[in-house]
């Protein structure tokens, strides 16, 4: 099979970008979408042209590095599947496929289809962790966790931080990402001590990075390769409201001694 590719080419952040159209070489329908781009790049290299830059790493749907908006949908035509796990058999011979980078002010473009998603790292650093002493592994089941809570926490923990939610949202909002991180830790007993401090810090960092606000369109949930539910955004809204109402904790004069 062959496809016609309309790919966004942009040398760097400051230069203007444009779409360029390429005819793919003969493809095996069982190639992944990224392998198809590899084959295209091989052909471009042979011709002495600049290969198309795109993000990829594990290619098995768990690292969150691959991106791309394919025909208007981040991560291509399927639900709950990342670009790297999208195969050419999902397209028809002769199809025109439009490939764009994730577009958001908070994800500045690096080159072609590569964007800088460090804003997510900074949100994580603001509070997406728990503070515990490391050491030997604790006994299993020493802290009881209800099955339902651990199931839900694991649903949220599936977030691979790829940024498709931001790419799909008409407001480039990072709410689903932040909600997944806050929900994941907030559902577990280990996350309770810093629960409200965390939600405030992460939301404030999210606002600082220049992401938009949530208008409940549901695009994020529809494109999430891990099918994370909008329910987590409601949970984030609830936790943030409680955190605001609680206010900042009082500093003990004696330093807590």
């Amino acid at each position: 099979m062959k496809v016609k590719l309309k790919v966004w080419r942009q040398k760097n952040r400051t230069s203007a970008g444009e779409f360029k159209t390429y005819e793919s070489p003969e493809l095996n329908p069982n190639m992944s979408f990224l392998e198809m781009l590899d084959v295209l790049n091989e052909q471009l290299a042979v011709r002495g042209e600049e290969p198309v830059a795109f993000d990829h790493d594990c290619r098995e749907g768990i690292c969150g590095t691959c991106s791309l908006v394919i025909d208007g949908k981040p991560h291509g035509p399927h639900r709950g599947v990342a670009t790297c796990q999208t195969y050419m058999r999902s397209f028809k011979d002769g199809d025109e496929v439009v490939i764009e980078p994730f577009r958001a002010a908070a994800f500045p473009l690096v080159k072609d289809l590569v964007v800088d998603r460090q804003a997510f790292d900074r949100i994580q650093q603001a509070g997406g962790y728990i503070s515990v002493r490391t050491g030997s592994a604790p006994d299993a089941n020493s802290i009881p966790v209800p099955k339902e809570d651990s199931d839900l926490a694991m649903d949220a923990a599936q977030c691979i931080g790829c940024g498709a939610c931001v790419a799909a949202c008409k407001n480039a909002s990072a709410m689903l990402f932040v909600a997944a991180k806050v929900g994941h830790l907030g559902l577990l007993p280990q996350g309770q001590p810093e629960r409200y401090k965390r939600v405030k810090a992460m939301v404030e960092q999210m606002d600082t990075e220049g992401f938009g606000a949530c208008t409940v369109t549901g695009s994020c949930e529809a494109v999430c390769p891990k099918s994370i539910s909008l329910d987590f955004i409601a949970r984030l809204n609830r936790d943030y409201a409680v955190a605001l109402l609680k206010g900042d904790p009082k500093k003990a004069a004696s330093g807590g001694a």
């Binding site: 779409f19 208007g72 764009e100 577009r103 008409k170 549901g218």
Partner: peptide
């Protein structure tokens, strides 16, 4: 301002 460059393919999937 959060999305300064629009998508050529529309965006707002499934909204």
């Amino acid at each position: 301002s959060a999305r300064p460059v629009a998508y050529a393919t529309g965006g707002a999937y499934a909204a």
